[in-house]
Amino acid sequence: MIELKQLTKKYGTKKKSTTALSEIDLQVGKGEIFGVIGHSGAGKSTLIRCINLLERPTSGEVWVNGVNLTALGKGDLQKHRRKIGMIFQHFNLLSSATVYDNIAFPLTLTNTPKADIKKKVSDLLALVGLEDHKNKYPAQLSGGQKQRVGIARALASDPDVLLCDEATSALDPQTTDSILRLLLDINKKFNLTIMLITHEMHVIQSVCDRVAVIHAGGIVEEGPVTEVFLKPKHQVTREFINRETTGADALKLALSTTNSESSKQVKITFLGAQTYDSLLSQIVRETGVNFAILQGTISTIKDMPYGQLLVSFEGEASNINRTITLLKERNLDVEVMN
């Protein structure tokens, strides 16, 4: 649905320019929720704004739904932009227009008949749960309600793609969750492709199918969220994940105090249904090994349950090895730390 080819964006003059994005290649499939995570200044905002050409890339191509947007003239670009919805960190609603008129705005651009607008807007008001607020002005709404108006407005022209530019960054945690749930609903209901950028790992964890980590204008890691989240390869990715889970210092302490000849520190990753099985206790009972849990998380990535336990096995070396083999036989991912 979205394809970026060798996308490069430079700011400034030819003599003195800074590179915001360098040679980005990216593909987002139909119906997928794709997340881009990065620190501020990493280039993620520029990246998403290049997709509907709010920023024109210096070189490279942007393809959306089989059309090369970078090759279009002004008029055609305007037409194709109507099929790309966008929501913003600061909502960007018309302060002089009511909730109803804000949602109707994209439809008035194409001279849609009044009756059609009315029907579409009332459907959207119901979808985002704002039927009672249709005659209010944005200044009378809370942040979460404003973003709901933003989402309804973005959906009014039946877009192929929804771009979310830090859509939850200005909201409190509860509101963030309700907005993310709404995005998930919309994704399922309309099979809408969503691309979002964020600096919060839990946003990626709760809604995204795939994720790309952007750092200094380049993508350093990309893949399914389960893979990137559970087995991060790049330093920047690890930092994002560690901030969400327990701190790195606690881990260091746990590892140093339990490090001995007769023990082995092991990271076990459970994924899917096996997360809730009693595999570990069954196996240690069989091998007679004792274990201490040093660190652990059991949660979900989108709808997928996962668990990650850092344990220290104590006992005879042969028994510990057999435990590890048995764990691997049950398709658990086991990584020996020391």
Partner: peptide
């Protein structure tokens, strides 16, 4: 607000 102008641009205005 520049953001509002930008939003309208992104909607194909």
């Amino acid at each position: 607000d520049r953001g509002v102008i930008e939003a309208a641009t992104s909607m194909g205005a």
